[in-house]
Design a protein around this nucleic acid. Sequence first.
DNA 1: ATACCTTGTATAGCCTGCTATGCAATAATA
DNA 2: TATTATTGCATAGCAGGCTATACAAGGTAT
Lengths: 148, 148
Amino acid sequence: MEFRKHQSAGYLVNHMARLFARGLAARIKPMGLSIGTFPALLELWETDGLTQKQLTERLDIEQATMANTLARMERDGLITRKRDSADGRKQRICLTNRARHLHAPAIAAATAENHAALRALSTDEQRQFITLMQKIIASNTDTTTKDQ
Amino acid sequence: MEFRKHQSAGYLVNHMARLFARGLAARIKPMGLSIGTFPALLELWETDGLTQKQLTERLDIEQATMANTLARMERDGLITRKRDSADGRKQRICLTNRARHLHAPAIAAATAENHAALRALSTDEQRQFITLMQKIIASNTDTTTKDQ
DNA sequence: ATACCTTGTATAGCCTGCTATGCAATAATA
DNA sequence: TATTATTGCATAGCAGGCTATACAAGGTAT
């Protein structure tokens, strides 16, 4: 049973994710943002008016998690939710002005955190790292029913 | 503002961590374990009777998080907590028989999950990936006051 | 038209992470 | 020795992840 945590991918991935989360949280807290909203904001900055369903699919997040995240975002004045006139089940998620104005500083913060977190790696190593993660994610994600 | 999530280390790390967590959770659920207990169990399987303080330092987890995790572990019959006779503030964490017997199957589950999650990578790439993560974690961890 | 199925959200309840705070035991100092 | 500081743990409260479940809106089928 020679299991060494520092050689275990799962252990390292978890630890690394907590370190990234702490770092980004500290950077975006001053602008009133928390990390859970970030992925949703990224999607909405690119295409406003997405459905909750579309967000869950694009972000690989469970529907219930997204519903709760959107509730907090609405509470914090980042989004508004409007029922779709054509299909009363759907809710269109729209950014508020506040959220639109946070685009540039939030992206800057995320970029800075990525840079800082990877500072121990050379440019080549950083590229390798990204590529390896993309492979891992692709092979562990069910793409058969996503984002059609 | 050309920010692409699939090129962002932070985004990928978060997604990857959720995938690993889902995978391990599914594998250890049948034995009545959840992922939050795993790091603590790893330490205790190696050296039983550690203090809560020692656990938080070795796992880079906040004290409050560890206190809650240990409370769940005690509730679930994985550990017992005994006050230290020499220093009444400290609590020695000891594994129950149940936890000791879970060692082998739990390690097997974690090993299997690591293997499955990395199946898209060659042996060389897996080594590179581990090494890169170790570098990132080391450069983002404050080692000045840890584990003295 | 009625009954049934599917789809999109919401809610309840839990785990795992965090910060902030309280408190008891010990250590240090005036 | 009495006071103060430090140390170790617990608790409150929240964010963000999950599963299970409820429910209303929209389709389908008889």
